[in-house]
């Protein structure tokens, strides 16, 4: 393992996204695509149009983020009295009733994680676009965290589903889902796709070009 390290790109090799087989980047298929000889996936040396695709998804998620937080996600009707709840009012309710661990879970999963993800992805996109040399290892780590935590934002979508299913007690109490839930679900899905479409190898490509 003493030899000089090189990237697959420099050696004209390509690593398969799904089975990780490294093959020669010349195996051109009929349609001008490279196909993995082992699993049959289409091969790309870098995720195709990673930057523009990720930007589009990040911007869409930022837009969805506003109605997701402003609009109510549930409406509780209890003995003729109706009350709509947004994500934030739900968090405040839990704080007021002293259930701060739950308040913390909801706040983190529904408000903090999506926003943090979007800010981190924007930062990474700008850093790659400008070919920054700053701490590539830490930026890669940021990306790794972003990719891993996104799924936890689904918590509130599931809570709404369960409440809607359970609280059907006729005149006593009823819970209905409100449009905010749709936008919130859209935020979760678009941020997950955004994280998947970003290619962390671009962070390192910028480092390479500067050394030469």
């Amino acid at each position: 393992m003493k030899e000089e390290f090189a990237t697959a790109l420099e050696k004209s090799l390509v690593s398969c996204h799904s089975c990780h087989l490294v093959s020669k980047a010349t195996a051109i298929h009929g349609k001008g695509e490279m196909i993995c000889p082992r699993c049959g996936s289409v091969l790309h040396q870098r995720k195709p149009r990673s930057l523009s695709r990720t930007w589009a998804l990040v911007i869409a998620a930022f837009i969805f983020y506003i109605p997701a937080n402003v609009l109510p996600i549930t409406k509780v009707t209890s003995l003729g009295h109706a009350q709509s709840d947004t994500i934030i009012s739900g968090v405040i309710y839990f704080i007021q009733t002293g259930m701060w661990p739950i308040a913390l879970i909801i706040f983190t999963a529904s408000i903090f994680v999506p926003l943090a993800k979007l800010l981190i992805l924007s930062f990474l996109l700008i850093s790659v676009d400008r070919k920054w040399q700053w701490r590539p290892r830490d930026r890669t780590r940021l990306y790794r965290i972003t990719e891993a935590i996104g799924r936890w934002s689904m918590t509130d979508v599931y809570v709404v589903t369960i409440l809607v299913a359970l609280v059907r007690l006729g005149a006593l109490a009823n819970v209905e889902a409100e449009p905010g839930a749709i936008f919130f679900a859209a935020v979760v899905v678009t941020t997950m796709f955004a994280a998947m479409s970003f290619d962390p190898r671009l962070i390192w490509d910028a480092m390479e070009t500067d050394h030469e």
């Binding site: 739950i102 879970i105 999963a109 918590t155 599931y158 809570v159 589903t161 369960i162 359970l166 609280v167």
Partner: peptide, 18 residues
């Protein structure tokens, strides 16, 4: 696993109601 967390949160949330 995220659904499981959703169940736990719902249980706490509904505790006051029924």
């Amino acid at each position: 696993e995220v659904f499981m967390v959703g169940i736990l949160v719902s249980m706490v949330k509904l505790g006051k109601l029924a």
